[in-house]
Design a protein around this nucleic acid. Structure first.
Length: 277
DNA sequence: AAAGTGCTCAACCGCCGGAAT
DNA sequence: GATTCCGGCGGTTGAGCACTT
């Protein structure tokens, strides 16, 4: 599947992994754990590069990986997160337990990428921004380094501290234990429930330097574009169960916006996380 | 049935940033 | 402070499969 035929001049195998190689790698990681990827091939006796081993493990062999059949709900979440984050596949994948950045990236490039062209309104929200607002946002965004324009027609937030070094696992879920016991992953319904619980906005900011992000956004015209109808209080912010979610650090975030929350960060009434305006 | 075309997705590459020296 | 090493990320490729003609 790779770009080069196997057995290159440097003596390393390339291309598709054999089941034998998979077993060696999986067994090695089980015993020694992840990390030290550059040394791993030598220690494990694999004729592969460290990067290749890491990729194979993360995208294929790692316990808890879900394969294929991205559900409608997952697709919707991907769309919303992509709208907010742009091509930050690792961040998006971090919000979808069991999915890899590679898989989401592939899914977007093959399926959703085409839909963007075919039905842009699905990805741009119901209300199109006025041209003047859009121009204003573009001008504002161009002037501020941490916020860039995505390749799509609408701006996305691209904070500087975006490298996702760990996948957030909700406290009530224990995929590692599940994998160790060779248990089946959650059913789709169960998994979706977990995903939606997982999009608690306070958790969402786990990957961001919130203070920095907010300070860079604050006083920026972009916020006005984000907030069609700024609220005078935060009473509308509710959790999935309908109860108020104004708990720290959410309340602190709200404070930065003088109580007016960007629509993207509000959880809606229903099952869908309301990340889009 | 065969050839052509399109699609999927595993794997590779180059670049970047942080840690170590 | 400069350099090197390593892990991680996003973009891209191309083999293999599915579908169409």
């Amino acid at each position: 599947m790779g770009r080069r035929p196997p057995c290159s001049q440097d003596g390393l195998n390339r291309g598709a992994w054999s089941s034998h190689e998979d077993k060696i790698l999986a067994d090695y990681v089980k015993v020694h754990g992840e990390g030290k990827w550059t040394d791993l091939p030598k220690r494990a006796g694999l004729k592969r590069g460290g990067k290749s081993c890491r990729l194979r493990w993360l995208n294929y062999l790692r316990p808890g990986i879900k394969r294929g059949n991205i559900s409608h709900e997952e697709e919707d979440l991907i769309i919303r997160l992509h709208k907010l984050l742009g091509n930050r596949w690792s961040l998006i994948a971090g919000r979808l337990p069991g999915r890899t950045d590679n898989e989401i990236k592939n899914y977007w490039n093959t399926k959703l990428g085409k839909e963007v062209k075919a039905i842009p309104e699905k990805f741009n929200g119901e209300k199109a921004q006025s041209k003047s607002k859009e121009r204003k946002a573009v001008a504002s965004l161009k002037a501020k380094a941490p916020i860039e324009l995505g390749k799509q027609s609408h701006p996305v937030i691209r904070p500087k501290a975006v490298r996702c070094t760990k996948v957030y696992i909700p406290p009530h879920r224990d995929d590692h234990k599940m994998a160790d016991q060779n248990l089946e992953p959650h059913s789709n319904e169960h998994a979706l429930e977990s995903i939606l619980e997982d999009v608690d906005p306070s958790n969402f900011f786990v990957d961001f330097d919130v203070e920095k992000l907010l300070s860079e956004l604050y006083d920026d015209d972009f916020l006005q574009v984000c907030m069609d109808e700024p609220r005078e209080d935060n009473s509308g912010v509710r959790g999935l169960d309908g109860r108020s979610m104004m708990l720290s650090p959410w309340s602190e975030i709200s404070h930065h916006f003088h109580g007016a929350m960007p629509e993207e960060w509000r959880i809606g009434d229903g099952l869908q996380p309301n990340l889009a305006p």
